[in-house]
């Protein structure tokens, strides 16, 4: 007997009625669908939310640049496609000069992968931004790894061993390295590298990844990983989560049945916090990348953004802002997916 019959519930969800049509409405299939269905709905909702947010992001970016003094905005519309196709669209809609007209023209351009041309170099912004984004992703992901490698042992050690003389010093250590100014740390890194390891880490005429030697890659990664200002927060968050989960009743049950508490606590105590902290710290690392890339001459979004802000190169800074927002939303989307899959309860409530 299944629960629907028990409660006298005769209503069929859309998927159930579809299953009925496909002759799949065995109780077994229903049972399975009851589980999978809400998950699918939640995933679709998350995707739509991400799209809506990206739409909002484009509005914000456009509005800021639209409100900027000077006629520099028209530069944005001077991409390769603009002359013919896009303006036609706008004109056919009848509002090429209004705010909305310009926005829709611009948005259509973007959706075609056309971010205009750089004022300073005259090159296509899209290609430059894409290659810079990849470089920055390399830097930030590796730096995040460094941060996690520093933070995890501290968090696990201090939360599992409540009574240890190292507890205080480790916490203070995490605080101190989080308060160090990143740019100064970068210089110290360069100094140590040149004077102690006899290696000058600044790539000259960089641009192609293959040219980067291991030191040229490692030093900026280490500096950003240590100095992004997130270590103490990551430690505190992980510590809180791990000790909270270790106090959970189901962990006590796991202990009582002689099972490994780490196996049972892994999902809630390690996997979800990690994915959450990574996704929520992406903006911080992208911000830190601006400084590190500027110091180390790293050909990424950060240095590009800095240069563009210097030159008031609108198409470029706009492209970077969009790319950064896409990265942030992607990270958060990945986290939500992991969360929904790991914790099916979330979509059932």
């Amino acid at each position: 007997m299944n629960t629907h019959q028990q409660t006298g519930d005769t209503w069929l969800s859309p998927v159930q009625s579809l299953a009925h049509k496909l002759n799949l409405d065995s109780p077994w299939v229903k049972h399975k669908l009851d589980f999978v269905m809400p998950m699918g709905v939640t995933i679709i909702r998350e995707l739509l939310l991400a799209l809506a947010l990206l739409f909002g992001v484009s509005l914000v970016v456009f509005t800021i640049l639209y409100a900027a003094p000077g006629d520099s905005f028209s530069l944005l519309l001077s991409g390769e496609r603009s002359a013919s196709a896009t303006e036609e669209v706008a004109q056919s809609l009848g509002f090429s000069n209004s705010w909305f007209g310009q926005y829709s023209t611009w948005l259509i351009n973007i959706l075609h992968g056309d971010l205009g041309t750089s004022i300073r170099t005259g090159q296509s912004v899209f290609e430059n931004v894409v290659s810079a984004t990849i470089n920055t992703l390399n830097l930030t992901l590796a730096a995040m790894l460094v941060t996690l490698i520093i933070a995890y042992p501290i968090a696990i050690y201090t939360s599992v061993r409540s009574a240890t003389p190292l507890n205080g010093p480790l916490t203070i250590f995490a605080y101190v390295i989080s308060a160090l100014p990143l740019f100064w740390l970068a210089y110290i890194g360069i100094f140590v590298s040149t004077n102690v390891f006899d290696y000058f880490p600044l790539g000259i005429g960089l641009g192609v990844e293959d040219d980067m030697e291991i030191m040229q890659f490692l030093l900026p990664v280490l500096i950003l990983g240590i100095g992004s200002g997130t270590v103490s927060e990551v430690v505190r968050f992980l510590k809180l989560e791990i000790s909270r989960v270790l106090e959970e009743e189901y962990i006590r049950t796991a202990k009582a049945k002689g099972a490994s508490i780490w196996r049972h606590g892994f999902k809630e105590g390690l996997l979800l916090p990690t994915s959450q902290i990574i996704s929520s710290k992406i903006p911080f690392f992208l911000g830190g990348a601006i400084i590190v890339e500027q110091v180390f001459n790293w050909p990424g979004m950060g240095r590009m953004a800095w240069q563009a802000a210097q030159d008031r190169d609108f198409p470029v800074i706009m492209g970077i802002a969009l790319a950064a927002a896409i990265l942030v939303r992607l990270g958060s989307l990945v986290h939500r997916m992991i969360y929904i899959i790991v914790n099916p309860r979330a979509s059932h409530e």
Binding site: E248, T253, A254, A256, H264, V342, N343
Partner: peptide, 25 residues
């Protein structure tokens, strides 16, 4: 001490079963 006791010799059930069973599995 408890390696061969917990689960094997002595089992426990708790109150609030929804929180006491692993909600992720």
């Amino acid at each position: 001490n408890m390696k061969h006791i917990r689960g094997k010799e002595i089992s426990m059930i708790f109150q609030n079963p929804k929180a006491a069973m692993n909600p992720y599995e």
